[in-house]
Write a protein that binds this DNA or RNA. Structure first.
Length: 117
DNA sequence: AGTTTGACAGTAT
DNA sequence: GATACTGCCAAAC
């Protein structure tokens, strides 16, 4: 399976359950490149709006809404998450421990995994 | 064609 | 424990 990195990022992102969040690192790890978290950010940045990706559910390892600035208005991202029931420990920080979702734990994403034998 | 930059993360100091 | 440095890979300059 040799799809573009970005495409795989979109697929994983689209798979984030409602009311849950995940991190750049976890997405990267799920794709087989634990050290390419930056690429996830790069991919999301250039992600077409047509895909309707729930990118607001992607936060950094601290649970901080690092991408809030890319949502038109910074608070838009936080509002969306609150509406999904996600609680915040700070104005820009979600309760990651309580709502984090690890793509690698979801069996339905097996096809995306890139485990090197 | 070399350099810089990114919605980051892990390790080292 | 907080800061600094490095890795990652593609795109824009």
């Amino acid at each position: 399976m040799s799809e573009d990195f970005a495409s795989r990022v979109y697929q994983v992102t689209a798979s984030i359950p409602y009311g849950r969040v995940t991190t750049f690192g976890r997405i990267a790890r799920a794709l087989g490149s634990p050290r390419s978290a930056r690429m996830v950010g790069w991919a999301l940045n250039r992600s077409p709006r047509e895909l309707n990706l729930p990118a607001h559910r992607v936060v950094n390892r601290n649970g901080v809404l690092s991408g809030a600035l890319h949502f038109g208005h910074p608070d838009a991202m936080a509002d969306l998450l609150r509406e999904e029931g996600v609680t915040f420990v700070d104005e820009i920080t979600v309760d990651l421990d309580a709502f984090v979702w690890d793509p690698a734990e979801d069996p339905s994403l097996d096809e995306l995994f890139v485990f090197p034998d």
